[in-house]
Design a protein around this nucleic acid. Structure first.
Length: 471
RNA sequence: UCCUCUGUAGCUCAGCGGUAGAGCGGGUGGCUGUUAACCACUAGGUCGUUGGUUCGAACCCAACCGGAGGAGCCA
């Protein structure tokens, strides 16, 4: 158990900083004579002789209860005006609590109000809708739910780097601005410069040709995999799709590993190992926050995550999946038909009803997949895979890439693509081509899966969706 | 882009053709250690916007704006 005083020393690497994070105060194993905590008031309860002030500094979910005697110097100036949302600096002793509900509390020696909160401070102790909290995206991280979500988001970003770095993957920063109008991954945002109110186009174009915000770093990632063997990207991605659902955002983060000397089976192995690693890490590192989600957001979350951690994932070919759906006897709004994409309801049936666990579907008909996916020996299907999880649907999409020059050229032609636009991509097949594979993981969808939060807008700090780019 | 639902106090909501309400939050006072504390008093509203129907509209109708859910597409 960390000792708060020792941890205070550790934090003091920053000049003049002597604040102890509340997370460490609450982990104390003995009373402490005097430390400093700082944070924001969540609620205050007054009685005649003293006040209870609940303070949160974002270091953990739980508040620290401060007991402030009415005899404290400056009580009327510093404690009485504290309302929910005000910021405080408190020096005091960490003592065992006389009340129920917490082991430790702080007996205040001095309380300083740093900033008051006006009476219309919108965050209260209860009863907010998610829609309202979205409208105050600048204040919602001060709520229990969003504090927890963004601590988990940070930890999962770390765990992703850890997973790949531990396996010798090289982190590649693929460009955000791209001039290749590629692969039909979705509608793109155009990047332009302005001359006053005039948009510069044609010969005036900044890059000499049309440019866009990236929809995927995959093609650039392949070039680096064909040099450094195992690489991954992790960065923002943009889609100008006019889609109004709880699972789509215009700006989101994507993780895209690309592995040389790799086939589809190993690609699926990697995707499943990554999901297991992230779930395992969340269960170990974010236990308190997950407990909050399990209680208030998605009952049964933790046991579901534990089963994802402990059970093998299912794996079926597209052909088998279609047969399972046809033989299920379940009623679907859209009929199951070989050669068509699986509908959301079909994916949900497979992962939630039939297998009841994460399920990877592979070898899709070539007609419904993009040009770069490797044609299988049956010449009907491509080496593609989608990892489906209960509650979310597709969380990972990947494939083995077509490494054979002539077949890639034929695929491009079949997809009405001009080879001249992809000369650098084709070059990878002309000079030392190797089998390689990769996948894309939507970071926000992963976070929805791990936190149980139902709307993508609530796992990204400042969501961008059609018609909405506030803050 | 299509379909459905929705907009009343700082927040959560009730009111559904006849004087705008409650709880929480704010303020004031009280209270023997509270835990979404409790008790009393109090301030707080262009009922999303515009137009229409009506003696009279928060309520009925239309358009527009905002929000949500689903579909398609995807991550």
């Amino acid at each position: 158990m960390p000792n708060p005083v020792e941890n205070r020393e550790a934090v003091s690497i920053l000049p003049g900083m002597t604040r102890t994070p509340i997370r460490e105060v609450l982990q104390s194993d003995a009373p402490e004579p005097e430390i400093l905590i700082e944070g924001w008031v969540r609620t205050k309860r007054d009685s005649k002789a003293f006040s209870f002030i609940e303070v949160n500094d974002g270091s953990c979910l739980t508040n620290l209860q401060i007991v402030a005697d009415a005899t404290l110097e400056g009580y009327h100036d510093s404690v009485i005006p504290l309302t929910t949302g005000a910021s405080v600096s408190v020096r005091g002793k960490v003592v065992e609590s006389q009340g129920k509900g917490q082991k430790w509390e702080m007996q205040a020696i001095t309380v300083t109000m740093l900033g008051s909160a006006e009476g219309d401070f919108p965050l209260q102790k209860k009863g907010h809708s998610m829609e309202f909290l979205r409208s105050i995206a600048h204040l919602r991280p001060r709520s229990n739910l969003f504090g927890a979500v963004f601590r988990v988001r940070s930890r999962m970003a770390y765990a992703i780097h850890q997973f790949f770095q531990d396996r010798g993957f090289v982190y590649v920063h693929t460009p955000v601005i791209t001039a290749s109008d590629c692969e039909g991954a979705g509608e793109m945002f155009r990047v332009v410069t302005m001359d006053g109110e005039e948009i510069r186009l044609g010969d005036e174009e900044f890059f000499g040709k049309p440019s866009y915000l990236t929809v995927s770093g995959q093609l650039e990632g392949e070039t680096f995999a064909c040099a450094l063997s195992n690489i991954y990207t992790f960065g923002p991605t943009f889609r100008a799709e006019n889609s109004h659902t709880s699972r789509h955002a215009s700006e989101f983060w994507m993780i895209e590993p690309e592995i040389a000397f790799c086939d589809l089976m190993a690609d699926m192995d990697l995707a499943e190992a990554m999901i297991k690693h992230l779930v395992t890490d969340a269960l170990e590192s974010c236990r308190e926050d997950l407990g909050f989600f399990d209680q208030f957001v998605d009952k049964g979350l933790i046991s579901r995550l534990e089963s994802v951690r402990d059970r093998a994932f299912e794996r079926v070919s597209y052909t088998e999946a279609v047969r399972i759906l046809e033989e299920s006897g379940a009623k679907f709004e859209f009929p199951v038909e070989y050669g068509h994409n699986l509908q959301s309801e079909h994916e949900r049936y497979l992962t939630e009803t039939h297998f009841k666990c994460p399920t990877t579907v592979y070898n899709y008909p070539k007609e419904i997949k993009p040009f770069y996916m490797r044609i299988n020996d049956d010449e009907k299907t491509v080496a593609a895979m989608d990892l489906l999880v209960p509650g979310i649907g597709e969380i990972v999409g990947g494939s083995q890439r077509e490494e054979r020059l002539e077949i890639l050229r034929a695929n491009m032609k079949a997809h009405d693509l001009d080879e001249a636009d992809y000369s650098w991509y084709v070059d990878l097949r002309r000079y030392g081509s190797v089998p390689h594979a990769g996948f894309g993981l939507g970071f926000e969808r992963l976070l929805m899966f791990i936190t149980g939060v139902a709307n993508i807008r609530d796992v990204i700090p400042f969501p961008r969706t059609p018609g909405s780019a506030e803050f």
